[in-house]
Every structure is written in C-alpha cells, then in structure tokens.
Design a protein around this nucleic acid. Structure first.
Lengths: 210, 210
DNA sequence: TAGATTGTTAATCGATTAACAATC
DNA sequence: TAGATTGTTAATCGATTAACAATC
C-alpha cells in the first residue's frame, strides 16, 4: 500500500492518539466522535479528522470512530504489531533505568543486552539483562536480532558508538547523548535531550507571561 | 523589558543554539556568521537571523555574531543565569537516574531531595540526595526553596502528586509519567514521554521511505 | 427519514525561506 | 571605501481550522 508522505507533525501526534484510545478502551468506551475526542485531548475535532484521514477513512458518518478498531489500526500504523529488540549502549544510571523499565515490553520493545566500556560492569545483570563489554558489540549484533540501540553514554563516545552500530546494520537509534548525530538517510534517530527539556522549563519559568 | 510573544517553535530551538555556541566557545571560535552556523546546525541562515532577532540585535553587519556574547545572552534568555532547585517525585530507577546525573547541576539545576510512597526507600540517599516519604512533601517544600519537581512515578499517581505540588506552590513540572497533566495557566509542564519517543522510532522503521 | 458526524475542500493562520536595503 | 553580513520586509510554504456536502 502506497500512501503519500505523512507530515512530521502528524506522526508526532499519533502516539498520543494511541494513548487516549487505549484509555478509552480500558474505560469500556466503544465508539467516539471527533468532537468528544477533541474535548478530551484538547485539540480541534477538525485536526483529529484531518490526521486520521491521512491513513484512510477509519470513521463512519453519523457514528464516529470505533475505539477498539481505531486503536488497533493506529497501533499497526505505528508498527506496534511487531517486536523490537533493543540494546543499550552505556550501562550507567540512565541505561540501567531504561533496562529496568519493564513497561516498554508491553509495547513490544524488549531490552536484550547492555554494553559498557567500563569492564567492572561486565557480567552484571539488570532485571536479567546482561552487561557486556563494548568489545563484544559487533559479535553480539551479528548473532542476535537487534533493531534499536539506545545511546545512554556521554556525548564524547556517542558519535563513535553510533558509527559502529550503523556499520554493523542497526537502523534505529534512540539518542540520549547531548549531541546531534550525523547518520545516513536510512537510519532513524530519535533524540531525547533531557537538558534541553530542562532549559525549556527554565525559559518558561523565567519569561512567564503575566 | 517587554518583548512580544515568542513562538513555541523558536523556544524549542534556543537550547540547541546554546549547545552549539557552547561547543564553538570550547573550540576557541570568537565570531560566527549566520551562514557558518547554518552549515553546522543544518538549518537556514535566514532562520537563525529571524530567531535571534526575536530577542534583539545580537549581531553586527559585516562581522557576524560574537560567540561568547551570544552564548551568554541566550543563556540569560533561557534563564540559565539563575539556579533552580529540583525535587524528584518517585525514587524508582528513573528518579534515581536523574538524581545521579550530575551534569544538570552545571546548568544550574540542582537535585535536592527525592520522595517516594515506598517507605522502604526512606532514609536512602543517591549521590548524597536523600529520599523522603511522600508524607513529608508539603513540609519539605515549605521549608526549602524548590522551583521544579520531576514526576518519575507511575501514571496512576502522577495527577494526584501534581495537584499537591501545585497547591503548595510549585510552578515547574518535569513530567515523565505517561499522562497529560491538567494544570492552571501559570504552571509550566514539560513532558518527557519516553514510550511515545520509542513509538516514533518504530513508526519510522516500519514506514521507511525507500 | 432525520440527525449526526465523517471525509474533504477551501480559508486562514503561522512559520520558514528568500531577498535586499541598511550598516558595520 | 568595498566587502561582508546583519536586520527586516516580502514571498512562499505548510499546517491548522472552518465549512459543508456526502453518507451512515
């Protein structure tokens, strides 16, 4: 199925739709109109209909949208019908926190291994997830199915680690290092720059519109 | 000084400018033109000039921008000339990871205390930062200067915790819980929804444009 | 059928890019 | 002064909202 290019803005909203639909499902709500969903999500009904129509007509005139159906359809669009194996580069606090966060697995993201240059961590496990030496990175990826790598190491090592990962075939990078990675077109990088997020708080606190 | 409303898009880019200028400073670069910066940052020179001009003329025709000056000016705009005390609600892995991340302090964000409903954690410290009972939250905030609270607890408790924080006077919330908080207008919420970030990776991996 | 609500086109709004006069 | 580069206006592009005919 060929669909035209979806804008970045729409993609960014999809997981939020998915979350709200999941909640509605848990509440036992069977159907919802763009108007009702609009009230819940604090976005316009028009935007909801526009967004969903990027992927085809999920609704029905006079009825609205079937919650369960729409939830699963958006799940498929997001690629959540598949499982992704994840490795974590950098077994420090952040890396361990991610390894410990079992909830990601519910969505199909399974942490399989951690890697660290610090040989003292070698052999350690976090929630059953082993820490290996960075020396073993290529071997591990060759012998295991890995789709996504989380970079939870200091900025200084991030670019080099990314290069190795890309060379050996990884196409998804979840980058927590405070740097912009330069990668080929077919590699997906999703940045989580926590310090930038903090700075936006301080900006808004400092420049609070009265 | 009254300046007109700055758009959300511009604010989002400011920390990135700040990061690049910091790097230039470290490299010993004294001045930079919008054209050169454009090449580094992969955004148009026009956008750079537009963005900076929201805050006044930082550059000089025929010369460009003085790196050190611009760095400090953007720092001031971002409110990084002040110190912010931070408390962490939820002393689980993510909370501890944030407590452990000393780098935030370099930017003026100082973690002071953690709170958890799990009384077993009470008395524990992480990098010298103590864990208190949630029962002591209001007392602590009354007796200490706290500007920002990080919510690193499960979704179920997040809304209630936010209510308590706001009631006692906190105006900055760094929300890691997978829920949208409803807050008064003068409260700043910055969301970090890690699972949504993962979903965007899976979307892009699944729908990779060939 | 009448009422509700979608899918979709058209209008508006905002953000980005281009262009160039001002000026160091 | 001549060259470089900003600050700023105008043009373009894209995203959001409004409107309404189609249709369940």
């Amino acid at each position: 199925m060929e669909h035209r290019e979806i804008s970045r803005a729409v993609i960014k909203r999809l997981p939020r739709y998915y979350r709200y639909l999941g909640e509605l499902m848990q509440e036992g709500v069977e159907r919802i109109s763009s108007g009702e969903l609009s009230k819940r999500m604090q976005i316009t009904a028009s935007q909801i209909r526009q967004d969903l129509n990027n992927f085809g007509g999920f609704g029905q005139q006079g009825y609205g949208y079937n919650v369960k159906y729409l939830y699963h359809e958006i799940g498929k669009i997001l690629g959540l019908d598949k499982t992704y194996n994840l490795i974590i580069i950098g077994a420090g606090n952040l890396g361990q926190a991610i390894a410990n966060y079992a909830n990601f697995e519910r969505r199909g993201f399974v942490a399989k291994a951690m890697f660290d240059t610090n040989s003292q961590l070698k052999g350690k496990t976090v929630r059953g997830i082993p820490v290996y030496s960075m020396d073993d990175l290529e071997d591990y990826i060759r012998n295991n199915d890995v789709q996504i790598a989380a970079l939870t190491l200091p900025k200084a090592g991030a670019e080099a680690a990314a290069k190795r990962l890309i060379k050996i075939g990884i196409r998804g990078i979840w980058n927590f290092a405070h740097t912009d990675l330069r990668v080929p077109d077919d590699v997906v990088v999703e940045n989580v720059h926590l310090s930038e997020s903090l700075m936006r708080i301080s900006y808004r606190l400092s420049n609070q519109e009265e």
